[in-house]
């Protein structure tokens, strides 16, 4: 079922929140609820989205939402899916909405357990590449070279020294029914992946890159542009895994120079040519691995 922007409902189910200007995560939450509709129950661990929506007595989600403890998103999702099954609710979507730290560092074992159990839920990881809610601390999804408060930059330190973990491949290793990566800058792709996930039975995981103006150091109006550049420079890819098959949605023959992406963000302004070389090398290796999956299936 293809979703187009023109057919989406005008009804807002995520409104009046207190997220920063130009928040990428807020775009993901809003679009997700547009596709999934009113019959949705949301689980939020400690994250930007939970802290900007549930400021007493304000509740910005117009659907049921539950703020869980930080590591328990997957476990609570399992419980909600079981409750829906027990009550015979067939039209309810159970949605987990967690940030990158709550998914890849703190919530990974609960997510892994929930995927293993095979409960029927959708899990969205909106990836702003650090713990933005508490003031930009590094997470397992912070990219190489990025400045955060826990990976400072000065004469002796160059910022984050590790590359991003790959949630997409971790989920593929679980032989999950459906997982995908997406970006806020490509809404058609994101909406169609959400619509597809809604139809499939079992656990579904979406990893969505969501630029964060506050933490990344770009103007709030540039959120979408930065997201597009990440895909065009090859530092983020849009791919799907379904029935054991990998599909790459954007497979560019040539990438833009990574400098285009880095020069627009304050967190990368200390990077040198040597760092760009290391990053480009890593990017090419990652793409080789990804394209290998493609080759095997054909």
């Amino acid at each position: 079922m293809a979703v187009s922007i023109k057919n989406l409902p005008d009804q807002e189910l995520f409104y009046g929140h207190k997220a920063c200007q130009g928040c990428g995560g807020a775009i993901v939450a809003r679009l997700a609820l547009k596709v999934l509709g009113e019959r949705t129950c949301i689980v939020l661990p400690a994250s930007c989205i939970s802290s900007v929506t549930t400021i007493y007595p304000q509740m910005s989600f117009l659907v049921n939402s539950l703020t869980s403890s930080f590591p328990a998103t997957g476990a609570v999702l399992s419980g909600m899916a079981a409750a829906c099954k027990a009550q015979g609710l067939k039209d309810v979507t159970v949605l987990g909405f967690a940030g990158d730290g709550g998914t890849i560092d703190i919530g990974l074992q609960a997510l892994s357990g929930a995927v293993e159990r095979g409960d029927d839920f959708i899990y969205i990881c909106y990836d702003n590449e650090a713990y933005m809610n508490t003031g930009v601390q590094r997470s397992g999804l912070t990219p190489y070279g990025a400045w955060t408060t826990t990976t400072p930059t000065n004469n002796n330190a160059v910022g984050e020294k590790k590359f991003k973990k790959n949630l997409f491949e971790i989920m593929m290793a679980h032989r999950i029914p459906y997982c995908a990566t997406a970006s806020v800058a490509y809404p058609n792709d994101l909406l169609n992946k959400l619509a597809k996930a809604k139809e499939i039975q079992g656990p579904k995981v979406l990893h969505v890159q969501a630029p964060c103006p506050t933490g990344w150091g770009h103007g709030p109006e540039k959120t979408v542009e930065i997201g597009k550049l990440a895909v065009r420079t090859g530092l983020w890819y849009l791919a799907e895994y379904e029935n054991g098959q990998v599909t790459i949605n954007t497979n560019p023959k040539e990438f833009k120079p990574v400098k285009d992406y880095f020069s627009k963000q304050k967190r990368f302004r200390h990077l040198t040519e040597e760092d760009f070389r290391i990053i480009e090398e890593h990017r090419d290796t990652e793409w080789k691995i990804l394209r290998n999956y493609l080759g095997k299936d054909e």
Partner: peptide, 11 residues
């Protein structure tokens, strides 16, 4: 717990 969709001030 609290009711969903409660907004009391503007942004």
């Amino acid at each position: 717990g609290s009711e969903a969709g409660v907004l009391i001030d503007v942004n």
